[in-house]
Design a protein around this nucleic acid. Sequence first.
DNA 1: TAAAAATACTCCATAGGTATTTTAT
DNA 2: ATAAAATACCTATGGAGTATTTTTA
Lengths: 128, 128
Amino acid sequence: MRLRELETLAAIFETGSASEAARLLGVTQPAISRTLARLEEKLGFELFNRVNGRLVTTRRAEAIRAEVQNLLDGLHNLTRITDQLSKGRVGELRFGCARPSCSNSLLQEDRRCSNSQARHGSTGQGRS
Amino acid sequence: MRLRELETLAAIFETGSASEAARLLGVTQPAISRTLARLEEKLGFELFNRVNGRLVTTRRAEAIRAEVQNLLDGLHNLTRITDQLSKGRVGELRFGCARPSCSNSLLQEDRRCSNSQARHGSTGQGRS
DNA sequence: TAAAAATACTCCATAGGTATTTTAT
DNA sequence: ATAAAATACCTATGGAGTATTTTTA
């Protein structure tokens, strides 16, 4: 169960066709068809019936629709968090201290359980 | 943000080392190290500090730990559902009907909005 | 004819393996 | 010497593209 497969599935749910799903995801129609075909093969059952050249949602597909959307929502939330964590460094502060022992006790690096290993030096960098 | 990256991250969280995470996921240690390195590169910040040859969780990694676990739990739930949907066909029932029109009105195939297209025939297969 | 889906290729990035190196205990 | 992590090199596969075919309205 790949992530791209979930995104593809959700896009087809949302748009109702492989062609529209392709536009939504910014890829080509064959990419959607193949990903869907491989997913159905792995799952062991059909997610859409091909009727009159169109995709028609099966009952089994409907049964997992909510959970798929749930997962994608959670993933987007995680992405939002990591984006903030990466560009969200409030600024890099630089400290000066007369004695090495001072910086050791005052500076907290972005690590855990390793205070005793902090390297000695009169200058340190702290991240907020 | 690949799925395998989330699984790798969770495994390191759980075991505390890349080697143990590798055993947990049934892959080799280099596989874990590389996946982690690529994830950190994409995210733009470090998830673990390499201190004395060991991985030590950063604050940023702690900040996403719960959400990562959430997503994996949701995925496992989805997998459980699809497993049941695939092997969970209660049995294949076979019906016989004197007149074709009878099976048309009584049998519901695993498709939607296509009753008018159901093929005629005195025998049909229904999935529960 | 137009539109949707499927198929047949080709290409590249990811994920995996084995072997080896580096570093710290 | 051991153990953890990183690195180098190789292979397989998933996902993407373009081009084409099939089918139906």
